[in-house]
Computed example of a mutant assay.
Amino acid sequence: MANTSAEYIQHHLQNLVYGAHPEKGWILAQTPEDVAQMGFWAVHVDTLGWSLFMGIIFITLFRMVAKRATAGVPGKLQNVVEMTVDFVQGMVKDTFHGRSPIIGPLALTIFVWILLMNSLKWLPVDYIPGLAHALGLEYFKIVPTADPNGTFGISLGVFVLIIFYSFKVKGTGGFLKELSFTPFNHWSLVPFNLFLEILGLLTKPLSLALRLFGNMYAGEVVFILIALLPFYIQWGLYVPWAIFHILVIPLQAFIFMVLTIVYLSAAHEDH
């Protein structure tokens, strides 16, 4: 484990990486040097594991509530699930102006899944990494959205849907015409329009990923810095910061969901 404050911070911000080392073969990285030499062929095991675990919790929980739903007085869990579904459904109706059977389920999945992953931030920063270290794992991060690989994975999935529906709804000619003649409807400005529109298209997944990652990563760093303080000071700062994240965590999930709906709504607009 870390001996100095700098080593402690670096240790808690390092992912558990499994990849191809040029000298050691396929290994779990035990040092930052190992990670640096792995290059592209590496997998963040903790990010993937916790993402899948939170996804399974979401699917299992909502499926269980759906199967046990009653027409009478609902239980507390059913109330929470129904309120969440109604909330997301209302956002889709107000924001999405096309026709698609997947936008509602997609928006619900994104909101709840990101909310659950963000919520792992409320766990004390030393508990899970300490347990992992006891099991022989040198590094272990538990907040998937504090890893840019996790947030870019989700945003790239949204980006693929944007491109798919742009071609499907507008047609190849219609989509290319939109890129070529927006915002200036003149043939001489087609190169300038293409530059602006393609740049704007590429910034959509970039903004989605970096906004979520930046907020979650910054919050994680502050929690780690608080953990470096004496124990009698930690709780005086940890509790207010955790309470503040009661707003930040759902807000970031909400922003990601709304932007996804807006981007897909634009992809469904057939001029």
Rank of each mutant, 00 (worst) to 15 (best):
P250I: 05
K93F: 07
V221C: 04
G72Q: 13
E7C: 01
Y127F: 14
L116T: 08
L179F: 15
I102K: 11
S188C: 09
F58Y: 15
K177S: 15
H186L: 09
F111S: 07
Y139H: 03
V43N: 05
W41P: 00
S207P: 02
M1G: 00
F231W: 05
A253G: 03
L194A: 08
L131N: 01
N193S: 09
A253Y: 02
A227L: 02
A266T: 08
L179Q: 14
G19E: 07
Q78M: 07
W241S: 02
Y139N: 02
W187A: 15
E220D: 10
G150P: 06
H271F: 06
M257C: 11
Y8C: 01
I110R: 13
I59H: 12
A267H: 08
A266R: 12
Y217D: 01
K204F: 11
S155A: 15
W50N: 02
L161P: 09
A6K: 00
V45W: 07
D46N: 10
F53D: 03
G75T: 10
A71M: 09
T260H: 08
F58Q: 15
V92A: 10
M54L: 11
L194E: 11
T70P: 03
I59E: 13
K76Q: 12
G55M: 13
T172Q: 10
W187L: 11
